[in-house]
């Protein structure tokens, strides 16, 4: 393999990995105050991509306006999901992980409605304005500016999220709810508001992931499940709750996938990824950067 080819694959892998990391971070956002993984978030990414096509390509709206509309719309959908599929389980105080089934059911509903509306063809979504998909050569490196934008956006968003959790009152309140729900209530914090807010934010963040991923991956209704699994792998490798870990996990997944794409066919590629994740989880059950929760009796 030529150095140029290898570097091109690595660049592609890092860009893909950044997208996977965004999905994983979206899962983390909704998880933090709720301890619930929203399995419908893969479909939120898909909706971000498909609505991106609808608003930007089909309707022809300006990028920023279209993106804002779909972030709000999918954020609201996330909040709605929290009301119908997650909040009832909190009220029932059930220990049976009922939310796994209800969020999965929600995702089945979304993908099948989307299938009816959009049909299965892949669609083109334009890159972020000011960036392009044209290849730039720089010594042995080749890349496009949209790839750079995606990676930069993920890094910036992680800084933003960490800043939010550490330095804003709402962010601290979310940390407080995650640590001690009753204790937070005694300080005047309503956990239900923050649970809802986190689902809205997780939804919007995934929608953003969808619209910036679409130019690289093409928008199609089958995108959601694939990205949910890859996003989960990124998060599981990095460690639940660790945004930087998730980014590294995503890049590892992206690079393995990218490099193996010239050596292996689709099935083997997925098999290798699954094997890597199973192996890491066997050796380090809480990921590369995660912490084991304390035991309670």
């Amino acid at each position: 393999m030529l150095l140029e080819d290898f570097l091109a694959l690595m660049v592609n892998g890092v860009a893909l990995g950044a997208i996977y990391a965004m999905v994983g971070i979206g899962l983390n956002i909704a998880y933090k105050p709720t301890n619930v993984f929203n399995l419908a978030q893969g479909e939120f990414v898909m909706l971000g991509a498909m609505l991106g096509w609808l608003l930007l390509t089909y309707v022809g709206m300006p990028w920023v306006a279209g993106t804002l509309i779909l972030l709000v719309a999918i954020g609201i959908l996330g909040g709605f999901e929290e009301r119908v599929a997650v909040a009832p389980h909190f009220r029932a105080d059930s220990h049976h992980h009922g939310w796994l089934i209800s969020t999965l059911a929600f995702s089945i509903i979304i993908i099948n409605i989307a299938d009816q509306v959009f049909r299965a063809d892949p669609r083109f979504v334009p890159p972020i304005p000011g960036f392009s998909l044209d290849t730039i050569f720089m010594g042995p490196l080749s890349f496009n500016t949209h790839q750079v934008a995606v990676v930069a956006l993920v890094v910036a968003s992680i800084f933003g999220i960490e800043y939010f959790y550490r330095h804003t009152l709402t962010g601290k309140a979310i940390s407080a709810v995650a640590e001690d729900r009753d204790g937070a209530r005694l300080n005047g914090i309503n956990p239900l508001h923050l649970t809802m807010l986190s689902f809205v934010a997780g939804g919007a963040y995934c929608a953003l992931a969808g619209i910036i991923a679409a130019p690289l991956l093409l928008a199609s209704t089958s995108l959601g499940l694939m990205l949910l699994v890859k996003g989960f792998m990124a998060m599981a490798l990095g460690g639940v709750g660790s945004q930087w870990g998730t980014l590294i996990g995503g890049i590892v997944i992206g690079c393995i996938e990218s490099i193996s794409s010239i050596l292996l066919t689709t099935g083997y590629r997925q098999l290798v990824l699954l094997a890597v994740v199973l192996l890491v989880l066997l050796i380090r059950p809480h990921g590369l950067f995660g912490k084991a929760p304390g035991r309670t009796v």
Binding site: H97, L104, L228, V229, T265, G267, Q270, L271
Partner: peptide, 22 residues
């Protein structure tokens, strides 16, 4: 057990592709 959910989703996506590859 939620890890298992996602591992099994991944597995059910791998199987049909592997059938084609093999």
């Amino acid at each position: 057990s939620w890890y298992f959910v996602l591992v099994t989703i991944a597995f059910s996506m791998v199987v049909p592709s592997m059938l084609v590859d093999l």
